[in-house]
């Protein structure tokens, strides 16, 4: 009896075994650690307007897509974009699934322990948003901006006031972002924190009223606030930067790839010098967010 079954198993193997992992595992050329790969595999999210998003034809568009195409042109390599889920990007980058990440990713100490970054290309503070009718809009917070690496007494007072006002409120952030980290560390004990996979879903739930307050990048908020659906919502309170918000947004790459990093940095430097970065920034964001 047993041998018949073993024979059945054997038949199964010959019939079906052929379509095993061969087509699933694609082998990459062993990466030479110190060269600029061509094509350059670029991971982005495709759900973080206006940095990167998908249009109705299914194409990736946005500030970072244009910027990265320009960087690739300057490095004389071909860009190959891959849309990837946000919170898996760093592990996937480490696993070698792509060469760089360009996804509005801020350069933070926490991330620098895991990966390397190019020089920053944009910087925008984080802002809170709520409905216009919300009493939070009418409060006076004293300061326009809170720099976490350089806390003045006024900034501390603004943060404390905010903590008091936000007590018990439902607040939305995108998962695994600097905004989520900030909310966890500074507001985690007072607010009911909801983590969304994408900024678009956060905005969607803000509109439905499921969350009262949201925290995100000022530029990303603008993409929502400038839409017809966003006209009932506004920024409130001070902008936040410094500290765990890091040093602007950069291109992430695996540690130790010096040649790639140098090439990226010189391309970014050129773009800043000849005004390309500023032009693109104004085109996508409406104002200049480029870094010196």
């Amino acid at each position: 009896m047993k041998s018949w079954i073993a024979a059945l198993g054997l038949a199964c193997v010959t019939l079906l075994g052929g379509c095993g992992k061969d087509d699933a595992a694609k082998q990459a050329a062993p990466a030479a650690a110190d060269s600029v790969p061509n094509p350059l595999r670029v991971a982005t999210e495709g759900a973080y307007p206006p940095y990167n998003m998908v249009d109705a034809s299914g194409n990736l568009v946005g500030f970072e897509i244009d910027m990265m195409k320009d960087i690739c042109r300057r490095m004389k390599v071909e860009c190959q974009f891959v849309a990837t889920a946000w919170d898996g990007m760093i592990p996937a980058l480490q696993a070698g699934r792509f060469d760089v990440v360009v996804a509005g990713m801020s350069i933070t100490e926490e991330r620098l322990q895991a990966v390397d970054f190019s020089d920053g290309y944009t910087t925008t503070p984080a802002y809170l948003v709520s409905a216009n009718s919300n009493p939070l809009q009418k409060e006076d917070y004293g300061v326009p901006k809170v720099d976490l690496s350089n806390m003045s007494p006024e900034s501390q007072a603004a943060l404390d006031k905010l903590r008091g006002l936000l007590k018990g409120k439902v607040m939305g952030v995108q998962t695994a972002t600097i905004h989520a980290n900030f909310a966890e560390k500074y507001l985690g004990d007072v607010v009911d924190l909801r983590r969304y996979d994408t900024q678009e879903q956060l905005a969607l739930d803000m509109q439905s009223g499921r969350i009262e307050v949201g925290l995100a990048d000022a530029v990303t908020w603008n993409a929502f606030l400038q839409r017809p659906e966003g006209r009932d919502y506004s920024f409130f309170g001070p902008g936040f930067d410094g500290g765990l918000f890091g040093r602007g947004q950069g291109v992430a790459l695996v540690k130790g790839r010096t040649a790639l990093k140098t090439a990226l940095n010189s391309a970014i430097k050129e773009m800043k010098a000849d005004g390309t970065m500023k032009t693109m920034s104004v085109q996508w964001f409406g104002f200049d967010t480029s870094m010196p």
Binding site: M1, K2, S3, I5, A6, L8, G9, L10, A11, C12, V13, L15, L16, G17, C19, G20, D23
Partner: peptide, 21 residues
């Protein structure tokens, strides 16, 4: 379809292993 084919292959092998391996 691809996953199902892999599943059938893996299923056959696993069943054979369970019954007489």
């Amino acid at each position: 379809v691809l996953a199902y084919l892999i599943g059938l292959g893996a299923g056959c092998l696993t069943a054979a292993a369970k019954l007489s391996g």
